[in-house]
Computed example of a mutant assay.
Amino acid sequence: MGAQCACPPPVDRPTLLELGTRLATLPETFHRLTEVLHDPMSTAADAAEIISYDPDLASRLLRFANSAYFGLRSPVDNINRAVIVIGVAQLMVIATGTCLIRSFRGIPSRMVDMRTFWQHSVACGVAARILAVHAGLEATDRLFLSGLLHDIGRLVTFIHLPDHAACLLQEAARRQVRLVDIEEEIVGADHGEIGAALLTHWNCPPYLVDDQRAVHAPDIPERRHAILAAADALANLFGPGSSGERLMPRLSAETWQATGLAPTAFATAAAQLERQVGDLLQCMEAL
Rank of each mutant, 00 (worst) to 15 (best):
A3H: 12
A3N: 07
C5D: 06
C7E: 08
P9S: 13
D12F: 06
D12S: 12
D12T: 04
P14Y: 07
E18W: 11
T21D: 07
L26W: 14
F30C: 07
R32K: 14
T34V: 01
L37F: 06
S42M: 09
A47M: 08
E49M: 00
I51E: 07
Y53A: 15
D56A: 15
A58F: 02
R60W: 01
R60F: 02
R63V: 02
N66V: 10
Y69P: 00
Y69L: 04
S74K: 05
V76E: 10
V76Y: 10
N80L: 09
A82L: 05
V83N: 04
V83R: 03
I84N: 02
I86Q: 00
I86S: 00
G87C: 05
V93G: 08
G97E: 04
R102P: 01
I107A: 02
S109M: 11
S109W: 08
V112P: 01
T116M: 05
W118V: 12
H120N: 08
V122M: 04
V126E: 13
V126W: 06
A128K: 14
L131Q: 04
L131M: 04
A135G: 14
L137E: 15
F144D: 02
L148T: 07
R154M: 08
V156H: 02
F158T: 03
I159G: 01
L161N: 12
H164Q: 14
L168Y: 04
E171I: 11
A173V: 11
R175D: 11
Q176C: 09
V177E: 05
L179K: 13
V180Y: 01
I182L: 12
I182G: 11
G188N: 06
E193K: 06
E193Y: 00
A196K: 13
W202P: 05
W202C: 06
N203V: 06
C204K: 01
Y207K: 00
V209Y: 00
D210L: 08
D211E: 07
Q212W: 10
Q212V: 09
Q212P: 09
R213L: 10
A214V: 02
H216Q: 14
A217K: 04
E222S: 08
R224H: 12
H225N: 11
A229C: 06
A230S: 05
A231F: 02
D232Q: 14
P240K: 14
G241T: 13
G241L: 08
E245C: 12
E245K: 08
R246K: 14
Q257C: 00
A258L: 03
T259W: 04
A262L: 10
A262C: 01
P263M: 00
F266M: 15
A270I: 07
E274R: 01
E274F: 00
V277N: 02
D279F: 14
D279Q: 15
Q282A: 10
Q282M: 00
M284R: 07
M284A: 15
E285Y: 09
E285G: 09
L287N: 08
